[in-house]
Amino acid sequence: MKTIVSMRDIHKSYLGQQIETHALRGISLEVKQGEFVAITGPSGCGKSTLLTIMGLLDSATEGSYEIAGIDTRGLKVDQRTTVRNQHIGYVFQSFNLIDSLTVFENVALPLEHRGERKEVVKAAVIEALEKVGMGHRMQYQPNQISGGQQQRVAIARALVGKPDLILVDEPTGNLDTKNGDAVMQLLLELNKQGATIVMVTHDSRYSGLAHRQIQLLDGKVVAEQQVKSQTDKEVA
């Protein structure tokens, strides 16, 4: 299977007030097409940092990172943006919808930035929103829908451009159990339809649903667990 993510010896450190903090210490991993990978670990272990590097929202201090065969080292800001637009969909913990835009416009953003024609955008957005069950709320403002619905819209935005990789950061962190379960079910369905997903979570109920779990501690991979069959898994 095609390798979507290939990370080699990734380091990330922040220089604060004369104190250097090492968030990631030599992480290497690969994600194959169609995989559902869960990254887990305690708070502060570096899982969100790893996801932002994977999503090209940040860059590693050391190490190499290839996404869909593209070496991201030395890419300029706009080149990274292009790669992100064409290959990555990102779902944030706090949804990050723009409240001045409608649900439709929020979801359309990646395609508009790609310069797609209006009719192509419209068809793709409707398809994505239908897929996440939000087709009936297209003209709503983000603040007019619930948290669970906002997260669904955020997922629709992430998958609308048909990216090679969907990165999901604590998708249930800001949701109640019912909404959290529904969002996880949605992600599982998307994965079944072929989406490659990397999800950061500290909730073991949800991490157990992934094909593979990667556990981090103090910026290092301390355990990696392969789940044999995911065919009949459902959110309890």
Partner: peptide, 16 residues
Amino acid sequence: RYEMAVRMATGAKQLS
């Protein structure tokens, strides 16, 4: 900045 960040995350270039 927040909106710009979201737009950048979804593929908006600096010039746009």
